[in-house]
Design a protein around this nucleic acid. Structure first.
Lengths: 316, 316
DNA sequence: GTGATGGTTTGACTTTTGTCAGTGCGCGTG
DNA sequence: CACGCGCACTGACAAAAGTCAAACCATCAC
């Protein structure tokens, strides 16, 4: 939605209504239009980020369990989404909380790296609109083919659009058929510059993938089921931005990883705010690996997951 | 307003209503309370900064005159408050705009210096509530006696309160009766530390004072009318955080300044974001001095003032 | 135990807001 | 020039939110 000249009236209506607290009919009188138009303008102002309404995520950070988990693991901040709420669907709640947390972590002028996956896409889908000009949202890894609609470029673009931020995509496949080609492509100035620019990020957003033979990476065709099985047998612990890590969160020197166009893991680890969101409780082991590997500083999980993590860390 | 245990329900109500978009009666049903209570909780959530509603100040920055003034003066950003709006009182509008701009300039974790004066107090008075834990608001200069209700500590405290930020006051008078006492007091660890800490600020907020014999500094008893007259004759151009500057914005080596407990002007100049708000058009010359002295990077003024400034800068 | 106090909570009422079918108007097209 | 198309606007109605007096309920002082 590009800024059109008569956005002015939209700004004015929003200003009078939200900042000055006038009633819609007063705004209408002042701008000499009908009240119904004012109502319409106000909706658009909200949808375009001219007006931002945000709720503190403290509700989810304000939890004894969260504090304990932070102390045990050394994570900077943990948000816990309860499952026991009668009416609210916890699976639907997680991305909403994550989106709000994500927004709170953004500073003006930040550069933000975004990976991909179902979780990230869900998050993008419920991301509130905001007016964050000057913020840059960039893709952390190469793209996938058609089948999925939560492809890396989709996630980046959608988040950038909602935030009124600039979106930067990586125009390369996530996985290539040969290591040599991957090397060559990584050396291409366009791609190389984009991968290098990731080190300027102040914040990254991702989830962690599992290493089962029906995992994300397999289903989207980036990796054969047998290959994944082999990796799992060889000690793979999880997937970060398309790359396989071992149970301690270290990069695995395997064919798949060498064929991947994605952010360097050390670069990611060096980013100050690393926000990790995990929806499924089945991702416990991958999450443990990711935390051990230093891929999370800010974590959003369910109560169940938090309890399991705490148990793991207490027993050493 | 300290956080009390049952703030939890307040957060919950705000979350369901604002983030999930439920209706008040749905929230009421879910929390098992009456809808009227929900309405009340929501108001409190807004008033306590749990929920923040902010409108982009673009409306006032989006102005040809503002761009021209930025180019001419080298200021980083200018906001212009129009006077010609039929219905809205421009004097009342200025602080509202300034407060919104101020909020937009704050980043999480910032340390902010606040001076004092009528303008700053007006601003504090219309400052929206926000949830900026981790932000510190500190007084730039010493205090005055009783007569005024817009004393330095008042301004700081009120702004900190609205923002839910930490407020730090300087417990010293603005002006002492002797230079020696001022020196000694500046050397006191408590005071010295506070003055030194000002250099850690990322943002300052102030206006500029005039040098007439009925100026602010005189009326509040910090300076005798004759003294001010003498300073004006000696080339005083304006007042910044209680200290007199000359027409080029340089610190004046005068008895008053030496008796002042206030932030070092070079320290202030080194702060990245220096937000200056000027309500009265009569403050044209002081403002020119302040800009020349490098005390503003972000400026909020009326259209008239902007035109005069532009004229001054074009003619050299 | 009583009664006063300060704060919540509620039901009932009023005001404000959201919505949508329908109107009006400018503009490019046949 | 008439026609149709798209867009912004309006009027009227239904839905939702704001408000307030009265009830309630702990807590404390006497």
């Amino acid at each position: 939605m590009p800024i059109r000249p008569n956005d002015h009236i939209l700004h004015k209506a929003a200003w009078l209504y939200y900042t000055h607290g006038l009633r819609q009919d007063e705004v209408a009188r002042q701008l000499d239009i009908s009240r119904a138009s004012v109502a319409m303008y106000l909706r658009r102002a909200r949808e375009s980020g001219i007006v931002t309404i945000s709720t503190s995520t403290q509700l989810f950070a304000d939890d004894v369990l969260a504090r304990e988990l932070e102390d045990a693991t050394g994570l900077k901040s943990v948000w816990i989404v309860p499952e026991d709420r009668h009416a609210m669907d916890p699976t639907a709640e997680m991305p909403v909380v994550a989106a709000a947390v994500f927004l709170e972590l953004i500073n003006k002028g930040d550069r933000i790296g975004v990976a991909w996956g179902r979780t990230v896409y869900h998050l993008a889908d419920v991301m509130p609109y905001a007016d964050l000009k000057g913020v840059t949202v960039m893709q952390l890894c190469g793209n996938l083919g058609a089948p999925y609609n939560y492809r890396p470029d989709q996630c980046t673009t959608e988040i950038a659009r909602r935030l009124n931020a600039e979106g930067i995509n990586i125009y390369a496949p996530l996985v290539l058929s040969s290591e040599q080609l991957a090397d060559e492509l990584r050396g291409e100035p366009v791609i190389r510059d984009q991968l290098t620019a990731i080190s300027d990020c102040q914040l990254v957003l991702y989830s962690v993938g599992g290493c089962e033979s029906d995992s994300h990476l397999v289903r989207c065709g980036a990796l054969a089921a047998e290959e994944m099985q082999a990796l799992a047998d060889a000690g793979a612990g999880g997937v970060i931005a398309g790359q396989v890590i071992d149970k301690d969160g270290q990069w695995m020197d395997c064919a798949h990883n060498r064929r991947c166009i994605s952010a360097n893991l050390d670069t990611i680890r060096a980013i100050p705010k690393r926000m990790m969101v995990v929806e499924e409780d089945s991702k416990f082991e991958p999450l443990v690996a990711a935390i051990k590997g230093g891929f999370a500083s800010h974590l959003v999980v369910t109560t169940t997951m938090a309890r399991r993590l705490l148990a793991r860390w207490s027993t050493g």
